[in-house]
């Protein structure tokens, strides 16, 4: 049997809200080490990679590897039936064709149970190579979300330029052009508010805002986001999930026609 109990159930709610517009169906790979998911969007331009380690659950039980194919829109609808402070348990019997979701109120006086039919998903697993990035930018996730939203009024793509001074986002379109420049923080009260640029070499890349906007829906998961860039390789946008794992998005670079 597979059973994973997540005391902070709202993490799962935020996760599924963050990916449901990008990916329709996904295979949850359940292993003794934890839960993972890898899926591309339908146009094969971006990839979602999720990891939730077993030690982030309490308890976590996985006797053998299981693949749970789940429609994320259905899952999102079901998760809306839980409260933000509910404890959420995911359970799957060995010979079952469904995943069971249990929502438990903090005082355990309310228990709801939903049985979700599993779906068969033909999912190709891609191998993500280890990459030494030219630039790694860390910033508040709310700031990332705001910049992506602001740039969308100008055009459908954004150029992100990283230098030792900071990072500059710029867009131009028919109505005009604009940019937002973030300087590296010198002194901040909280590390979560800092903007840092870890630079091997200056880099400037252009990406479709539509996808960055979808990625930025993960902002409620984590106070900070990390953007990793190298010339001619996919952008990595990473949100850490508390102390238990991460949600990563990869986006192929735009190419000059």
């Amino acid at each position: 049997m597979f059973e994973a109990r997540l005391p902070q159930g709202q993490i799962l709610k935020k996760l599924i809200e963050a990916v449901r517009e990008l990916v329709t169906d996904a295979n949850f790979e359940c292993k003794p080490s934890g839960l993972s998911l890898q899926a591309m969007d339908s146009s094969h331009v971006s990839l979602v990679s999720l990891l939730m380690r077993a030690d982030g659950f309490d308890p976590y039980q996985c006797d053998r590897n299981r693949t749970l194919g789940i429609n994320l829109r259905t899952l999102a609808s079901v998760l809306k039936c839980s409260s933000n402070d509910d404890i959420i348990t995911i359970r799957a019997e060995d010979d079952g064709d469904s995943a069971i979701l249990i929502f438990e109120s903090p005082s355990s006086d309310r228990l709801s149970e939903f049985d979700l039919k599993l779906v068969d998903i033909d999912n190709e697993q891609l191998v993500i190579p280890d990459t030494q990035y030219d630039a790694v930018v860390r910033m508040p996730s709310a700031e990332f979300q705001r910049i992506v939203r602001d740039m969308q009024i100008l055009g459908d793509s954004v150029t992100i330029a990283c230098s030792k001074d900071g990072v500059k986002f710029s867009a131009n379109g028919e109505i005009g052009s604009g940019s937002v420049r973030l300087k590296q923080s010198s002194a901040v009260d909280s590390e979560d508010d800092a903007v840092t640029v870890d630079l091997q070499q200056a880099v400037s890349l252009t990406f479709a805002l539509r996808y960055l906007s979808l990625f930025s829906k993960a902002a409620p998961l984590s106070p900070t986001v990390t953007l990793s860039f190298s010339k001619d390789v996919p952008l990595l946008v990473e949100f850490r999930i508390a102390d238990m794992g991460h949600l990563r998005f990869y986006l192929a670079p735009k190419i000059d026609e």
Binding site: V45, Q125, P234, Y250
Partner: peptide, 14 residues
């Protein structure tokens, strides 16, 4: 003009 590249050439199949 920009073209959005596909992801697969960067990440080979398992």
């Amino acid at each position: 003009q920009w073209l959005q590249a596909q992801l697969q050439p960067f990440f080979p199949d398992e």
